[in-house]
Design a protein around this nucleic acid. Structure first.
Lengths: 149, 149
DNA sequence: TTGCTCCTCACGTCACGTGAGGTGGC
DNA sequence: TTGCTCCTCACGTCACGTGAGGTGGC
C-alpha cells in the first residue's frame, strides 16, 4: 500500500520520454504542436517540458497503434481523444461510490478497448491473408522441386 | 493449353493499372521516376505508358507489402529488385532443361519467398502482442465489472 | 565552469496530392 | 467533334529530420 503522501512521480524530460516511448523529441514536440498530447504538458521554471510515467505509457501505446495500423495523425487524434476521455473517467471513478456511475465508466472503457481491438484484428486478417498467399506460392515451388527429383 | 500465338495481353493504361493495384496514377509515375518499376515500361506511339496483367500483380503485391509492413520506398526497392530477379529466373526456367539449373532456380525462389514470409511473421507477432495487451486490459475491466455486481 | 540536454525557428526530405495547361485515342 | 484519360511541370502537404544559435540544470 502506498503512503498518503506519495513520492512525487519522477519528472521526465522530453529526451527520456521519447527514448522510453520509442521515438524522438522532435516527434513529441510536433504532436504537442498539433494538440495531439491533450493539453501541452507542464513546463518547469526553465521552460523545459516535463512528463511522468503515465505519459510514457500513453505515448508508447499510441505510437504502437500508429505504426502497426498505419494510422495518420488525424486518425491518431481520435484515438488520443478517447484515451484522454478514458483518463478523465479513471479520475471520476475515484471520486464516486455510485454503482450506476461506476458501471457506466467501465462500460465506456470496454467500448473504447473494443474499438482498438477491432482495428487490430482487421489488420491481423490482412496480414494472415498475405502470409497465406506467400505460403501457397512456397508450396507450389516446393511441389515443382519434388517433381524434379 | 494455349495456342502458340497467344492473344496479345490486353495493354492497360496507367489509370487502370493503378485502380486494379489499389493506388493512383501519380504513385505509379513516382515509382517509375525512382526506378522502382524496373525499366520504365513501354510507351505506345502516343507516349502513354502501357502495362499488362503481370504488372498488376507485381504492383499490387509490392504495395501490399509496403502498406502492411510499413516499408519505406528504399526498403521496397530491394523487394522489387528481388521480384525482378525472380521474373528473370522464370524466363530462364523456360530456356533450359538442365535439372541442376532448374534446381537452383527453385531454391532461389524459395529463399526469396522465405525473406518476405519472415517479415510478415515478425509483424504478426507484434500485432498479436498488441492484441494480447488489449485483451488483458479488457479482462481487467471485465473483472472489475463483475466485482461491482 | 564544463557538458549535456533542452529551447525555438526554419529549412530539408520523403511520399505522394493536386491543379495548370496541353495532347492523344475510342 | 466531343469526352475521357493521358502527359509533364510544378507547387502543396504530411510527418517528421536536421542543423543554427541560444539558454538551462546536475
Amino acid at each position: 500500500m502506498s503512503s498518503p503522501t506519495q513520492a512525487p512521480p519522477r519528472a521526465l524530460r522530453i529526451g527520456e520520454l521519447a527514448a522510453r516511448a520509442g521515438t524522438t523529441p522532435r516527434t513529441i514536440r510536433y504532436y504537442e504542436e498539433l494538440g495531439l498530447l491533450g493539453g501541452q504538458g507542464d513546463r518547469d521554471a526553465g521552460r523545459h517540458r516535463l512528463y511522468d510515467e503515465e505519459d510514457v505509457e500513453r505515448v508508447a501505446h499510441v505510437l504502437r497503434l500508429k505504426e502497426l495500423l498505419g494510422l495518420s495523425l488525424e486518425d491518431l487524434q481520435r484515438v488520443v481523444e478517447a484515451e484522454t476521455a478514458r483518463a478523465a473517467l479513471k479520475r471520476e471513478w475515484r471520486t464516486t461510490e455510485d454503482i450506476t456511475i461506476r458501471h457506466r465508466i467501465l462500460d465506456e472503457a470496454l467500448a473504447h478497448i473494443a474499438v482498438q481491438l477491432e482495428l487490430v484484428e482487421r489488420r491481423q486478417v490482412e496480414l494472415e491473408d498475405l502470409a497465406e498467399s506467400l505460403r501457397a506460392r512456397r508450396a507450389l515451388v516446393h511441389r515443382r522441386r519434388g517433381e524434379l527429383a
